[in-house]
Design a binder for these strands. Structure first.
Lengths: 220, 220, 220, 220
DNA sequence: GATGAATGAGCCTTCATTCAT
DNA sequence: GATGAATGAAGGCTCATTCAT
């Protein structure tokens, strides 16, 4: 993940501050993926990063701060992903909704390890100040964006649904599929996850979506 | 929960084995609701129960066994609730689905403390052997029951959906609402949760459900 | 070990004080044989005896007293054994020494379980006040008896040994064989133990002992 | 044991890994000498070493590993002692046997504290996997060495003894004297212990040994 | 007499944090 | 910057002892 100085065999004695922090955060994510949020230790993180125990505290002062910054890091990555999907989607609400749905299944996000870390983090952090403080605003942004798209789509459709409730159902289904993929003993493949999600939106917007995705129409 | 001698102010020195175990399990649930699954300590459980530390180990031997039995206790309570709802629903698939949906919002289940404990337990236990061992079979039963009801309902409807996917969307929405009620900073009231759930099923079965619930038809 | 009242299937509700104490002491010996002196618990003793936990304290007040009385019990058994051997030996010092040697290999003493308990007890108790207080005097008696016999035997022999040292060598060899039988991975059989002991005394008293035991002489 | 900076009164905050481990092992030996093997606690060991509780686990991970390494340490010390005695003894079997006997009474080994620790360790560890695993092979080496020397000596003598039994008697006597010195209320001095040992071997090899030791012969 | 629930002290172990080098 | 030894608080567990029934 980091490639640097000429002297390559020994661990680089000096690293830019940011590179070290990123290295430690990535190690934290990896450790969470393996052991779960509440079981990781600083020793484990340091060993995963191939660094010394004390360095963790040097860079992050406390364990809680490390975890907090890891959460932000993970969350930013997530947000940037759906924002870029959204930006690429154009003005059509159907295309925008489709973009949001597909964003969560992007290969860079929907990785084994990433997923494990993210879900573990999410489930053990939800409802605690740490999470609300840092991700509450982002969630809000995601949710209101989703809701606005849904409202526009409902206006286009004949479906007489409440935008708040419909947007919520879509969000819950999307989140739930991620949880399923992590917690089920024999999880279904991502493709089936996406199909499930489309089954949900197709029920609300049958003119725009089918179980296999966004319907391509001649004239919109 | 305890009924005994006139000298009532002091905690009774002796209790039947079962009563004490139940008392400790209830204290465990309360402690989980407050601190979360991975943060509770035996000391905390004992203090919540107003008993000594050693007594917990006397009755449950290890912390893990205590948590395991608590999980079973909680899960049995949950299962008995939806089973009795289902039993009262009669043969119609729409009524049966409605029963399953309303079951999760029964006042005896959908309590502040109960909800907190259950969600914390559920989210931190899912995917671990402990959970699969004890609740996997029950979950299976719930899911297959749900799926069968949905299949019958789809057959009655004109809706061309995949029963597996549709049943999954409904389950994820239902579970997600519980999580919302626990983890959101400003959660919506249970009534709105139920409305959300009906918004979901109404999308799939508009002839049977509306956003306010099961549609009463002339002739069934 | 004890068989009593008419009502035979239920554990006899009332036992004579002494019978209960003996029952508990025997259970203690058995538990020590299995787990070792420093690992036994009162719960284990009670379970071995088939009695309730609290009864142990009722009869012995503290664990230490139970162990102390068990030591006395075991020691008395041991002492009575060699005393009866000695009494049966007649006046000849060679026969008396032979009696002392054979006494330790009497089947009633040299049992698997007895041996285990005795050695475990002995090795973890030696040098502590508990042991010296209760068994010191007996040991003294045994040792001085042995020494006196050896002295008479040396007087009969041409061997110019110091009775104290010779008696000590015999005692150490005898004790050591017991330890060997307990601690060796592949211990030799009791018969070889006895042969070893005779090899020892034969070295000191070749006219009286051979490696197979006391030499029977025409005229003594 | 530690030699360092001018600021000498405070315990040095940092020590080389090996030095600390040795310091903790020595503290363990001291604690065993005082309290006995099965009674020591890590707290006691730490206090004896003047260090904190947690440091013990930092260096040895578990109590059992600490005891295991202490056993090895003690045993190596013991083995090196008799091996160096043996190496200095020359080829004569009588001199070699004499070396083995005297080795156990070397002042560096036969110390008050050392003796106490060793005997406590030995008597409570014998027959347990821990001991057999680590010292079984060494014991074997010692015993077979002793037996071979005895066999050669018997060949030289007119004494018709079984080498296995004779070597065993000598070993038991030697071990027993150590136990005596530890467990007796009024133990005899080491010199008398050695005399006892010589009384034993003199009985088997009167031409080579007297009660005061190896007989110096004109021509060998 | 007898039972077993209840208590609490003490142990081993883990681990975030500190700090000398 | 970086290391890893050192500390100490806290948790789970064991178990002798007490005591209501």
């Amino acid at each position: 993940m980091t490639d640097e100085q000429p002297n390559s065999d020994a661990p680089p004695r000096k690293q830019s501050r940011e590179a070290r922090r990123t290295q430690l955060i990535e190690a934290t994510i990896a450790a969470i993926a393996v052991h779960g949020y509440s079981r990781i230790t600083l020793t484990e993180v340091a060993r995963t990063a191939g660094l010394s125990h004390g360095l963790v505290n040097f860079h992050f002062e406390t364990k809680e701060k490390l975890l907090g910054e890891t959460l932000i890091y993970l969350y930013d990555e997530y947000r940037q992903n759906w924002e870029s999907y959204l930006a690429a989607a154009g003005p059509s609400p159907a295309a925008q909704l489709d973009a949001l749905l597909r964003a969560d299944f992007d290969p860079s996000i929907c990785t084994q390890g990433r997923l494990a870390a993210w879900c573990s983090f999410w489930s053990e952090t939800q409802g605690r100040p740490l999470y609300q403080e840092r991700c509450g605003a982002n969630d809000e942004k995601y949710n209101s964006g989703m809701q606005e798209i849904v409202a526009r789509l409902l206006a286009e459709s004949s479906y007489p649904g409440n935008p708040t409730l419909v947007a919520r159902v879509i969000r819950l289904t999307s989140d739930g599929i991620w949880l399923d993929m992590m917690t089920l003993n024999a999880p279904y493949p991502p493709a089936e996850g996406l199909a499930t999600l489309y089954a949900c939106v197709a029920a609300f917007f049958p003119r725009h979506f089918g179980e296999s995705g966004l319907l391509q129409r001649m004239k919109s």
